[in-house]
Design a protein around this nucleic acid. Structure first.
Length: 601
RNA sequence: CGGGGCGUAGCGCAGUCUGGUAGCGCACCUGGUUCGGGACCAGGGGGUCGGAGGUUCAAAUCCUCUCGCCCCGACCA
């Protein structure tokens, strides 16, 4: 049994000025963590206990489908060079040299290491499927660590990798992870959402993220009441049909003089035409990763990418980057002139030469799906001071491809049930991803199939941010407490963790340790709880009751038993902080009442 | 990397503009009173003012350089 009087729980009355988000302030104030450097934190006693509980849940669930390993965090450069990530990871990877000058890195994930084990050990389809996982510290030199434990440079991750003989096997391994992830996050007491995610420029056939909705989050997710949920990087929507403008003149593109009218709004106002009837031109350059040799060989290291969007729509750069196959940057003035033969402000589709196919050289011209079938649009004329009327895609110009590259907006209808989309901030706590052959192929893993033929195993990778479970739980709870008492300025101080991940399940607060009866009763109750297998923290400090109550709340323990005045009547007070309910219970029933309360959570 | 802000006692801050013995609240230590919602009285300890260089009789304060941290934009668990 733990006695507060002997523990190191450095609670703070005020949060350090650097702390911004609720979980960061609370973790510091409650004595869970202390900062060592930007994005580098020590977990103190309470933090470690909470993390250990989360890890135990993750491990217990993962053990139902996979096997735990422990891999090196310190990796020789060669293994990362093989997959191409030594080059592609750039500054995000911590790199170092040993005394001999050999290059090493601190691992950010473990695809390479797992694949190298698979390659040297797996020989036969009979050994598949395999699911290997580990719970380990990862290192990432984040460009901008922030928000306490939410975005850090060193963190705990549960990462798992599956190896299957074929796609059906991968689908099964993926489905197992999805089910296990749902159990893990449910047991951790989180309200989460599973969303469709961007699988990145790397390819891959499927990817879902597990998200917890909170304003502290950095991701945006779109969801609706029909069950649709997607990262906005991936989300699509149904649009209300638009009645096109009537053609003017002979119905063919017609030049209009538009001096000094460059933006969509200026041109719209000048011509008296709303934004939905206009076509917006956006010009980028893609830069292909050095590792993508094939692409560079056929289309060059950089390539012009031109996108046409409806005037009132926003480009989604993630979607575009996935299609373009590299990193994007806006075109510079000379590049614009080289591509369009016209200055910015009057760019349009006509006269532009599109690559006939994405894999062929030339300008990659993309027409956003929302413009498919539209007619008589207003667009730039590729001529200074002129725009065109009556521009009709496919008739007047042919893009390289038609694709969804726009961002959805709040209120648009979801693509499956047609319900309005809500857009909210969220934290990503887990990600499951059908990797495909990227690593097994580049690193040369293979097994013999039933016919004695060499096959490349297909892989999946699956991650969980351990500390993020803690922070998400705190954010979620703090938001709820704040909403419940919106006019109470101290409300942001309050939160409570789910019993499954709280450092203790219950605090027994002896309101005054100088009264022998209270002290004895508190000791007795705490001992009984401890013997019943309940994680109890006995607050036996010689402090005033107010201090002890505040501290008990600050550390986020979900139940509190106060031993005080009512002991004279043989009663103690049980506070359920998650339900915000206080009940007086007979001393002798403390264990049983706690067991009941815990079983309900 | 670009933009903004901040480094003064463990935490929160004042002092910097206008150079002149380094301060306040909380926390900490001692004694006393108090004891169910962050008590009170009295006494006390603790600071290379982020670092280096410069200007000056004199620098937390002015100048130069540098390091660190936080926040806003491009990445991810």
């Amino acid at each position: 049994m733990h006695r507060w009087s002997q523990l190191f729980i450095p609670t703070l009355r005020e949060a350090p000025a650097d702390a911004e988000v609720a979980s960061h302030k609370l973790l510091l104030r409650a004595g869970y963590i202390r900062q060592l450097g930007a994005g580098i934190y020590s977990h103190l006693f309470l933090g470690t206990r909470a993390i250990n509980k989360i890890v135990a849940i993750v491990r217990e669930e993962m053990d139902t489908i996979g096997q735990e390993m422990h891999l090196p965090a310190l990796n020789p450069m060669e293994v990362w060079a093989e997959s191409g990530r030594w080059a592609s990871m750039g500054d995000t990877m911590f790199r170092l040299k040993d005394r001999k000058g050999a290059e090493l890195c601190l691992a950010m994930t473990h695809e390479e290491i797992m694949t190298s084990i698979a390659r040297s050990e797996l020989r036969s389809y009979k050994q598949l499927p395999q699911i290997w996982y580990q719970i380990q510290t990862k290192f990432r030199d984040e460009p901008r660590p922030k928000s306490g434990l939410l975005r850090v440079r060193q963190f705990l991750m549960k990462d798992a990798y599956s190896f299957d003989i074929d796609e059906a096997g991968l689908d099964a391994s993926y489905a197992k992870h999805e089910a296990v992830y749902r159990r893990i996050f449910t047991r951790c007491g989180l309200e989460f959402l599973v969303v469709e995610a961007d699988s990145g420029a790397m390819g891959g056939t499927g990817s879902q993220e597990f998200m917890v909705s909170t304003d502290a989050g950095e991701d945006l997710i779109a969801s609706s009441s029909s069950g649709y949920a997607a990262n906005v990087e991936k989300a699509t929507s149904k649009l209300a049909p638009v009645a096109d403008l009537a053609p003017t003149g002979d119905g063919l593109p017609e030049l209009v003089h538009t001096p000094n009218q460059k933006t969509i709004d200026e041109v719209g106002a000048f011509l008296g035409v709303e934004r939905v009837y206009q076509m917006k031109t956006m010009a980028y350059m893609v830069e292909h990763a050095d590792s993508d040799e094939k692409q560079i060989k056929t289309v060059g290291k950089t390539r012009a990418v031109v996108v046409f969007l409806r005037g009132d729509h926003q480009l989604n750069e993630t979607k575009l980057a996935a299609i373009a196959g590299g990193e994007l940057r806006p075109m510079q003035a000379e590049e614009i002139v080289a591509t369009f033969n016209a200055p910015a402000g009057f760019l349009g589709p006509i006269g532009l030469t599109a690559a006939p196919h994405p894999k062929k050289p030339g300008t990659l011209v993309i027409l956003d799906k929302a413009l498919e079938g539209r007619t008589n649009l207003i667009a730039g004329a590729n001529k200074e001071e002129y725009h065109l009327r009556n521009v009709t895609p496919m008739r007047d110009f042919k893009p390289t491809l038609v694709a969804d590259v726009r961002s959805v907006n709040e209120g648009e209808l979801d693509p499956i049930g047609g319900q309005p989309l809500r857009i909210a901030k969220a934290v990503e706590i887990g990600h499951i991803f059908k990797l495909g052959y990227k690593y097994s192929k580049s690193m040369g893993a293979s097994v013999l199939n039933r016919d004695g033929k060499e096959m490349t195993p297909i892989m999946g990778s699956y991650g969980i941010g351990i500390e993020r479970i803690l922070t998400a739980a705190i954010e979620q709870s703090a938001a709820k407490f704040a909403a419940q008492s919106a006019n109470d300025p101290k409300a942001s101080d309050a939160y409570a963790l789910p019993p499954s991940i709280a450092p203790f399940q219950v605090v027994v607060t002896i309101t005054n340790v100088r009264e022998p009866a209270l002290l004895a009763a508190g000791e007795e109750i705490a001992l009984a709880l401890d013997q019943a297998g309940i994680d109890v923290l006995l607050d036996d400090r010689d402090e005033r009751a107010g201090v002890k109550f505040k501290d008990a709340e600050l550390i986020g323990v979900p139940f509190r038993i106060a031993v005080g005045k009512k002991l004279a009547e043989g009663k103690v007070e049980l506070l359920d902080r998650l339900a915000n309910r206080t009940t007086d219970i007979p001393v002798g029933e403390a264990v049983q009442q706690m067991q009941t309360a815990l079983s309900l959570n």
